[in-house]
Amino acid sequence: MIPPDRPAGTATPHDLTLLPTLLLRAPAPPPPLTGRISLGTPVVRPLTGAQAAEGDGDWGAFLESEADRYDYLLLSLVCSFRPSTDGAPFTDAGIGIRLEAPGLPADHQPIAWSLSPKRRAVPAAPSGSLTLTANLVLVDAGVEYSPGGGGQEKLFVVGMGERDSDPEWRFTATPDTPLVGDESLALIVRTPAGAPARAHVTVAATVRQRRLGLIPYRAELPPALRTVTLR
């Protein structure tokens, strides 16, 4: 476990402006939305053997075995979805991360070694700590999804893209679970040892309007959120 006195969450939330995607059926584009989504400044921490020794995890040996080739970092952020004052709810949302090591070939780019959450049917309260397995795989907190009832249960959030350079999380509102509240996201990044790396963040969402139906939006991110220096 990463010690709770070193929080895995984020600081400095930023309210995002959501810009509508052009709709051919609309006589005029809907206005931008504000006050509906905020994103905390991403927190980046290198994972070290000292951290492993302080906690109750046994991933220090794995980190040492990889030290000649790879560095591992923890990227964490919190996204907050807020209800609408005019009754226009979110139907879905997505947060994407594109990892990049400038100047390195494709087979030397950073990847998402592990991410959390992976699959969950209900929201979970943000946690103050994260648990890692011996191979630096994040252990999801909260209520996990387990297929049952004929596999008809709908997923609230799905994380995808492990071992790729473009992981993402997709959120979907369900009849019983509106897309409202805080969501903690975490990513273990594997990058070539000593290489500079960065993460490019994107946020998108769909809103159901009474008159126009489903309206897709893409967030306008400030520079501090749009591109994050990992090392």
Rank of each mutant, 00 (worst) to 15 (best):
L179W: 02
L179A: 09
L179V: 09
L179N: 05
V180C: 04
V180R: 07
V180G: 02
G181L: 00
G181M: 04
D182W: 04
D182I: 03
D182C: 12
D182V: 08
D182T: 10
E183H: 15
E183M: 08
E183G: 02
E183F: 11
E183D: 12
E183Q: 14
S184R: 08
S184E: 06
S184C: 05
S184L: 14
S184A: 14
S184V: 01
L185N: 03
L185V: 09
A186T: 07
L187C: 10
L187E: 04
L187M: 13
L187T: 02
L187A: 09
I188M: 08
I188K: 02
I188S: 00
I188R: 03
I188F: 05
I188A: 03
V189K: 08
V189R: 00
V189L: 10
V189I: 15
R190G: 01
R190L: 03
R190N: 04
T191D: 00
T191H: 09
T191V: 12
T191K: 15
T191R: 15
T191N: 07
P192S: 10
P192Y: 06
P192G: 05
P192N: 11
P192V: 09
P192T: 08
P192I: 07
A193P: 00
A193G: 01
A193H: 11
G194R: 04
G194E: 06
G194F: 04
G194Q: 06
G194H: 08
G194N: 05
G194I: 04
G194S: 06
G194T: 05
A195S: 12
A195E: 04
P196E: 07
P196G: 06
A197N: 06
A197C: 12
A197W: 01
R198P: 03
R198H: 11
R198K: 14
A199F: 10
A199K: 00
A199P: 03
H200P: 00
H200K: 14
H200F: 10
V201C: 11
V201G: 06
V201S: 09
T202F: 10
T202H: 11
T202D: 13
T202E: 11
T202S: 15
T202L: 07
V203Y: 03
A204C: 14
A204D: 15
A204M: 13
A204Y: 05
A204Q: 15
A204S: 15
A204N: 13
A204T: 14
A205G: 06
A205Q: 00
A205P: 06
A205I: 03
A205N: 04
A205K: 01
A205S: 15
T206S: 15
T206N: 15
T206G: 11
V207W: 00
V207S: 05
V207L: 06
R208L: 15
R208C: 10
R208F: 13
Q209L: 09
Q209D: 12
Q209E: 14
R210P: 01
R210A: 15
R210Y: 03
R211F: 12
R211K: 12
R211N: 09
R211I: 12
L212V: 07
L212Y: 11
L212I: 07
G213L: 07
L214K: 11
L214E: 14
L214C: 07
L214A: 12
I215P: 01
I215V: 15
I215F: 00
I215R: 00
I215G: 00
P216T: 12
P216H: 12
Y217R: 01
Y217V: 04
R218Q: 14
R218V: 13
R218L: 08
A219V: 02
A219C: 10
A219I: 02
A219M: 09
A219H: 01
